[in-house]
Amino acid sequence: MPDQVPAIQVLDVVRDYPRPRTSLLRPAPVVHAVRGVSLDVKQGERFGIVGESGCGKSTLLRIIAALDQPTSGHVVVEGTDITRLPERRLRFLRENLQLVFQDPMSSLDPRMRVRDIIAEPLVVQGHPASGERVRELLEAVGLSADAGDRYPHQFSGGQRQRISIARALAPRPRILIADEPVSALDVSVRAQVLNLISDLVDELDLTLVFVSHDLSVVKHVCDRVAVMHAGQIVETGYTGDVYAAPQHAYTQRLVSAIPTLQRALSGATTSDLLATKGEPA
């Protein structure tokens, strides 16, 4: 087992975006989406990235999946530096790393049948996309076999997220990246999808990178977490530790801002959400 090699290694990744010019005289302003992020995800680990909108977590994720290029820095996946590799040399990555997205409405092509959606990665990668495999995948995510004949709009949000997961698993990846996979789901369905992801990660021995704005969900799913703020990682650690004793000022604010049932039932009010952990409201 080459378990010494980390599944994903991010080395000092920077990503700047030029914004549209606002003036003819001055140079185009630059957005520093990711500024110097480094992290290691071990094989088989469940790694969480948590942060609020605009913190750069989605950009980082795309860079890890080679869907975007860093301005500087490197991403090494299973020992291979994928930075600035041409698409034709990314085949191993396209097979081994798959994504599940946030929005169950926009993550499935509305004009394709579910079986074609699930088979897409197989077809693209030149594997035989047998009906057998599609049925197997549908079953693995808890959908009936006849779901393959239907179109995405005929499914509820939770079911669509299952289809999305089935598609991601089709090429038998070793790394699964989930970008806010339950944020758009109803509470009663969220638990089902979280369980499904958890089960599949266990059964298939996957490395999971789970991105969310919700630290309590990350804490439930992941072993380790990186907290992102303004393009940087401000804190990394075991999720339980980070949640219980956040070190960085931003993480402290984040943790105390999360409303939880238990805190509320033991008398926490909205002003307690604003109090930084440790100091009284």
């Binding site: 704005h213 604010r253 984040l254 801002a257 999360i258 409303p259 909205t270 002003s271 959400l273 604003l274």
Partner: peptide
Amino acid sequence: VTVQALVLD
């Protein structure tokens, strides 16, 4: 989340 806390309060 952090903005939500302020608005709720």
